[in-house]
Design a protein around this nucleic acid. Structure first.
Length: 224
DNA sequence: GCATTAACAGCCG
DNA sequence: CGGCTGTTAATGC
């Protein structure tokens, strides 16, 4: 069972719940740690839990039959996912890999459905989240073909600052250039050059092991 | 050509 | 020291 403070910290949606609903969510959620490179789940897994990122950085990706891996979303602390799989009682359609030491919150299926049945606030959150992810995945359909390395990096970086998925207003993220490369599907060296280009355009500010977003709109639309 | 790997020096925590 | 960064050289598609 997760502590009240911890749940509030890692789940923005929990603050809209009634006290009774919050207690139920808290009782049905626990924390699990994953090392760098560890798979949180594979394609085809039957996941019994709804999942949130408490600390760290995960990559949600699919692998095509030809063996190419494409990132569907980078997930940092505060992200929640897997509701589609839970609701439809399907197998997972994507892989989930920890890009660094990470802590993951697992909500029991039964608890998820209880909230789904009882909480208007929880349903509002789910609808907004579905909407955002849909928009994100539609963007993905155009993106792989059209964009070069810098464009892919810009998109993946912008995803990590989606204001609906990450309601806190933090503009700075602790992330290495290697991790950004893993997310965008490019080498560390290319990530380095791409970041420099984005910084030159005034879209981001690059620090040691961190990136600050200066213009999220233009970053999300960057096509270079 | 463009991107990737390998390699290395410099820098920071 | 250990991890991250910036750059160059060699290699591959």
């Amino acid at each position: 069972m997760i502590s009240e403070d911890e749940l509030r910290r890692i789940a923005a949606w929990s603050n809209d719940l009634t006290p009774e609903e919050f207690e139920e969510a808290r009782r049905g959620t626990s924390i699990k740690a994953y090392g760098k490179g560890a798979h949180v789940c594979h394609v085809g897994d039957r996941l019994e839990s709804w999942t949130g990122v408490a600390d760290g950085l995960l990559k949600m990706s699919t692998t095509s039959r030809s063996g190419k891996s494409a990132t569907l979303a980078g997930l940092r602390g505060g992200a929640w996912f897997g509701e589609g799989t839970i609701i439809k009682n399907e197998a997972r359609r994507y892989d989930l890999v920890a890009l660094r030491e990470s802590k993951v919150a697992l909500m029991r299926r039964q608890t998820f459905f209880w909230l789904f049945e009882h909480s208007a606030a929880f349903n509002r959150f789910l609808v907004h989240q579905f909407n955002e992810r849909l928009a994100q995945f539609i963007g993905l359909a155009e993106y792989d073909r059209m964009l070069g390395a810098t464009g892919r990096l810009a998109r993946n970086l912008a995803w990590l600052f989606n204001p609906i998925l990450y309601p806190n207003n933090d503009r700075t993220l602790t992330i290495s250039q290697e991790e950004l490369g893993l997310l965008a599907g490019i080498s560390r060296q290319m990530a380095n050059q791409s970041l420099a280009k984005l910084a030159e355009l005034g879209l981001v500010e690059v620090g040691h092991n961190e990136v600050t977003i200066l213009d999220l709109e233009r970053l999300a639309r960057y096509e270079g």
